[in-house]
Protein backbone atom coordinates (compact mmCIF):
# COMPACT_ATOMS: atom_id res chain seq x y z
CA UNK A 1 0.00 0.00 0.00
CA UNK A 2 1.32 3.42 -0.78
CA UNK A 3 -1.08 5.44 1.38
CA UNK A 4 0.80 6.96 4.31
CA UNK A 5 -2.35 7.84 6.21
CA UNK A 6 -3.24 4.23 7.07
CA UNK A 7 -0.76 2.96 9.68
CA UNK A 8 1.23 -0.09 8.69
CA UNK A 9 4.29 -1.82 9.98
CA UNK A 10 6.47 -4.88 9.46
CA UNK A 11 5.91 -7.98 11.56
CA UNK A 12 7.69 -7.62 14.92
CA UNK A 13 8.66 -10.13 17.58
CA UNK A 14 9.18 -8.98 21.17
CA UNK A 15 12.63 -9.93 22.52
CA UNK A 16 13.10 -12.83 20.03
CA UNK A 17 10.27 -14.71 21.78
CA UNK A 18 10.17 -18.35 20.72
CA UNK A 19 13.78 -18.55 19.56
CA UNK A 20 14.95 -19.55 23.04
CA UNK A 21 11.76 -20.37 24.87
CA UNK A 22 8.18 -19.18 24.49
CA UNK A 23 7.04 -16.69 27.12
CA UNK A 24 3.38 -15.67 27.31
CA UNK A 25 3.45 -11.94 26.64
CA UNK A 26 0.42 -11.16 28.78
CA UNK A 27 1.61 -10.23 32.27
CA UNK A 28 -1.60 -9.04 33.93
CA UNK A 29 -5.27 -8.79 33.12
CA UNK A 30 -7.78 -6.69 35.05
CA UNK A 31 -11.52 -7.46 34.86
CA UNK A 32 -13.53 -4.30 35.51
CA UNK A 33 -17.25 -4.68 36.11
CA UNK A 34 -20.19 -3.43 38.15
CA UNK A 35 -21.54 -5.69 40.91
CA UNK A 36 -25.16 -4.80 40.34
CA UNK A 37 -25.71 -3.26 36.92
CA UNK A 38 -27.32 -5.44 34.28
CA UNK A 39 -24.68 -4.63 31.68
CA UNK A 40 -22.05 -6.54 33.65
CA UNK A 41 -24.08 -9.73 34.05
CA UNK A 42 -22.14 -11.65 31.41
CA UNK A 43 -18.90 -10.50 32.95
CA UNK A 44 -20.09 -11.70 36.37
CA UNK A 45 -21.04 -15.05 34.81
CA UNK A 46 -17.61 -15.32 33.28
CA UNK A 47 -15.93 -14.56 36.61
CA UNK A 48 -18.06 -17.16 38.39
CA UNK A 49 -17.67 -19.96 35.83
CA UNK A 50 -14.67 -19.50 33.55
CA UNK A 51 -12.12 -17.35 35.36
CA UNK A 52 -10.76 -20.05 37.67
CA UNK A 53 -10.00 -22.33 34.75
CA UNK A 54 -8.15 -19.50 33.00
CA UNK A 55 -6.01 -18.69 36.07
CA UNK A 56 -5.18 -22.36 36.69
CA UNK A 57 -4.09 -22.83 33.08
CA UNK A 58 -2.04 -19.62 33.00
CA UNK A 59 -0.15 -19.21 36.27
CA UNK A 60 2.10 -16.65 34.59
CA UNK A 61 -0.77 -14.15 34.16
CA UNK A 62 -1.82 -12.10 37.19
CA UNK A 63 -5.63 -11.59 37.25
CA UNK A 64 -7.19 -8.68 39.08
CA UNK A 65 -10.89 -8.04 39.67
CA UNK A 66 -11.84 -4.40 39.91
CA UNK A 67 -15.51 -3.78 40.67
CA UNK A 68 -16.57 -0.28 39.63
CA UNK A 69 -20.03 1.01 40.36
CA UNK A 70 -22.22 2.23 37.49
CA UNK A 71 -19.50 1.53 34.92
CA UNK A 72 -19.58 -0.79 31.91
CA UNK A 73 -17.60 -4.04 31.94
CA UNK A 74 -14.17 -4.07 30.38
CA UNK A 75 -10.87 -5.88 30.42
CA UNK A 76 -7.43 -4.23 30.67
CA UNK A 77 -4.48 -6.30 29.43
CA UNK A 78 -0.88 -5.33 30.18
CA UNK A 79 1.89 -6.85 28.09
CA UNK A 80 5.58 -7.43 28.61
CA UNK A 81 6.57 -4.75 26.09
CA UNK A 82 4.88 -2.14 28.34
CA UNK A 83 1.72 -1.67 26.27
CA UNK A 84 -1.75 -1.59 27.74
CA UNK A 85 -4.90 -2.60 25.86
CA UNK A 86 -8.46 -1.96 26.98
CA UNK A 87 -11.35 -4.01 25.62
CA UNK A 88 -14.94 -2.95 26.27
CA UNK A 89 -17.13 -6.00 26.82
CA UNK A 90 -20.58 -4.49 27.40
CA UNK A 91 -23.19 -6.41 25.47
CA UNK A 92 -20.81 -9.29 24.82
CA UNK A 93 -21.86 -12.69 26.10
CA UNK A 94 -19.75 -15.25 27.94
CA UNK A 95 -18.38 -17.20 24.92
CA UNK A 96 -17.31 -13.90 23.32
CA UNK A 97 -15.65 -12.73 26.55
CA UNK A 98 -13.76 -16.04 26.67
CA UNK A 99 -12.58 -15.50 23.10
CA UNK A 100 -11.39 -11.96 23.81
CA UNK A 101 -9.52 -13.09 26.91
CA UNK A 102 -7.91 -15.85 24.85
CA UNK A 103 -7.02 -13.22 22.19
CA UNK A 104 -5.24 -11.13 24.83
CA UNK A 105 -3.40 -14.18 26.12
CA UNK A 106 -2.04 -15.15 22.70
CA UNK A 107 -1.02 -11.66 21.56
CA UNK A 108 2.52 -10.34 21.34
CA UNK A 109 1.53 -6.97 22.78
CA UNK A 110 2.52 -5.12 19.62
CA UNK A 111 -0.02 -2.62 18.25
CA UNK A 112 -2.31 -4.16 15.63
CA UNK A 113 -1.77 -2.44 12.30
CA UNK A 114 -1.76 -3.57 8.68
CA UNK A 115 1.14 -5.87 7.86
CA UNK A 116 3.48 -4.82 5.08
CA UNK A 117 4.80 -8.40 4.91
CA UNK A 118 3.65 -11.35 6.96
CA UNK A 119 7.21 -12.62 7.28
CA UNK A 120 10.55 -11.24 8.47
CA UNK A 121 14.08 -12.53 8.33
CA UNK A 122 17.43 -11.23 9.51
CA UNK A 123 19.29 -13.17 6.80
CA UNK A 124 17.45 -12.65 3.49
CA UNK A 125 20.28 -14.11 1.44
CA UNK A 126 22.90 -16.81 2.07
CA UNK A 127 24.51 -16.70 -1.37
CA UNK A 128 24.97 -12.96 -1.27
CA UNK A 129 23.09 -10.17 -3.02
CA UNK A 130 23.74 -9.58 -6.72
CA UNK A 131 26.29 -6.95 -7.72
CA UNK A 132 27.24 -5.83 -11.25
CA UNK A 133 30.45 -7.88 -11.33
CA UNK A 134 29.05 -11.16 -10.01
CA UNK A 135 28.62 -12.97 -13.32
CA UNK A 136 30.94 -10.91 -15.46
CA UNK A 137 33.68 -12.69 -17.40
CA UNK A 138 36.97 -12.00 -15.61
CA UNK A 139 38.64 -11.54 -18.98
CA UNK A 140 36.81 -8.21 -19.14
CA UNK A 141 38.78 -7.01 -16.14
CA UNK A 142 42.06 -7.25 -18.02
CA UNK A 143 40.88 -5.81 -21.38
CA UNK A 144 41.41 -2.23 -22.34
CA UNK A 145 38.21 -0.72 -23.66
CA UNK A 146 37.15 -0.30 -26.48
CA UNK A 147 37.95 -3.85 -27.50
CA UNK A 148 36.98 -5.50 -30.77
CA UNK A 149 36.48 -8.88 -29.11
CA UNK A 150 33.68 -7.75 -26.81
CA UNK A 151 32.21 -5.37 -29.35
CA UNK A 152 31.66 -7.67 -32.32
CA UNK A 153 28.29 -9.26 -32.74
CA UNK A 154 28.43 -13.02 -32.30
CA UNK A 155 27.48 -14.52 -35.66
CA UNK A 156 25.75 -17.86 -35.50
CA UNK A 157 25.12 -18.65 -39.16
CA UNK A 158 27.28 -18.83 -42.27
CA UNK A 159 27.17 -16.23 -45.04
CA UNK A 160 27.25 -17.09 -48.73
CA UNK A 161 30.86 -15.89 -48.92
CA UNK A 162 31.82 -18.33 -46.11
CA UNK A 163 30.17 -21.25 -47.95
CA UNK A 164 31.93 -20.41 -51.20
CA UNK A 165 35.32 -20.20 -49.48
CA UNK A 166 34.64 -23.54 -47.72
CA UNK A 167 33.85 -25.15 -51.08
CA UNK A 168 37.10 -23.74 -52.43
CA UNK A 169 39.01 -25.27 -49.54
CA UNK A 170 37.33 -28.66 -50.03
CA UNK A 171 38.05 -28.65 -53.76
CA UNK A 172 41.66 -27.58 -53.25
CA UNK A 173 42.22 -30.16 -50.51
CA UNK A 174 40.70 -32.97 -52.67
CA UNK A 175 42.90 -31.82 -55.59
CA UNK A 176 45.97 -31.89 -53.40
CA UNK A 177 45.02 -35.37 -52.12
CA UNK A 178 44.48 -36.53 -55.76
CA UNK A 179 47.82 -35.11 -56.78
CA UNK A 180 49.33 -36.83 -53.76
CA UNK A 181 47.87 -40.16 -54.94
CA UNK A 182 48.97 -39.45 -58.54
CA UNK A 183 52.44 -38.64 -57.33
CA UNK A 184 52.43 -41.92 -55.48
Amino acid sequence: MSNNAIPRDFVKNVLQNGVGRYVCQLKRITFRFCKSHGGSRHMRDFIENNLLEFTQKNPGVVCYLQPRRHRPPSVVAEFLNGRREVMLLSGKEVPEICKWVEHMRTRSGVQIVNMIQNNHTETPSTQGIWHPFMFRDSEMAATEFPSKKFSQIQVTGKTATDLVLEEQLKVSSSESSDSHIEGK
Binding site: R21, V23, C24, K27, R28, P59, G60, V61, V62
Partner: peptide
Protein backbone atom coordinates in the same frame (compact mmCIF):
# COMPACT_ATOMS: atom_id res chain seq x y z
CA UNK B 1 3.33 -10.71 40.79
CA UNK B 2 6.43 -12.42 42.18
CA UNK B 3 4.83 -15.85 41.81
CA UNK B 4 3.70 -15.15 38.23
CA UNK B 5 7.11 -13.84 37.25
CA UNK B 6 8.65 -17.23 37.87
CA UNK B 7 5.75 -19.15 36.32
CA UNK B 8 5.79 -17.00 33.19
CA UNK B 9 9.45 -17.83 32.55
Amino acid sequence: EIFSFGQRL
